[in-house]
């Protein structure tokens, strides 16, 4: 059996348009992209079910002319799931608009922070440990060997008390 060419082309167009929209920044466009791709997948199921036939009801249709009911059941489940997800994404886009007056997907601040530090070739964290306290490792070790001693960290603590 060769699949219906109209369906196959439609699936291709739905997926292409969906992928294009998914790459957008605005969440409502992403949402439409998800819907298009989801519908493309549903059509794919119909194609997977084989040739069209009459209603698969025992007694009403001779066995040879029935369409395959299983993929239709699966498509139904998938449609319901997509509906739920769409509703949730819509709610999120609305919430984003409430908070920021736009629904664009934002960058991760922490990611950019680390990228900026890496570009400037700086350390991720700076504190007493990373600062050079002494000339050599031995001197550093001698200075920091005991918490109760006159070591650098202890002094800081005392100073604050």
């Amino acid at each position: 059996m060769s699949p219906n060419i109209v369906l196959v082309v439609t699936i291709g167009v739905l997926f292409a348009a969906g992928v294009y929209l998914l790459l957008e920044r605005s969440l409502s466009r992403v949402l439409i992209g998800v819907i298009l791709i989801g519908n493309g997948a549903n059509l794919l199921f119909l194609v997977a079910g084989g040739a069209a036939g009459r209603p698969p009801i025992v007694g009403a249709t001779p066995e040879g002319q029935m369409s395959d009911p299983l993929p239709q059941a699966m498509v139904l489940t998938a449609i319901v799931i997509t509906l739920g997800m769409t509703a949730f994404l819509l709610a999120m886009a609305y919430r984003s608009w409430q908070l920021h007056r736009h629904d664009e997907v934002q960058d991760d601040v922490e990611d950019r922070n680390i990228a900026r530090l890496a570009a400037a070739n700086e350390r991720a964290t700076t504190d007493a440990d990373t600062e050079v306290a002494a000339e050599t490792l031995d001197e550093e070790a001698a200075e920091a060997r005991d918490e109760t001693d006159e070591g650098a960290p202890a002094r800081v603590l005392e100073g604050e008390r």
Binding site: L22, V34, F45, V47, S96, L99, V105, D108
Partner: peptide, 29 residues
């Protein structure tokens, strides 16, 4: 705001993987 930002990334990626899974199931069928 922060959770909506994180949630957007998470949900869109998860939806995409679900669609891939669905396509795989259709092709397997």
């Amino acid at each position: 705001g922060e959770r909506i930002r994180a949630g957007t990334i998470y949900i869109v990626v998860a939806l995409l993987s679900s669609v891939l899974f669905l396509v795989a199931i259709a092709m397997i069928y």
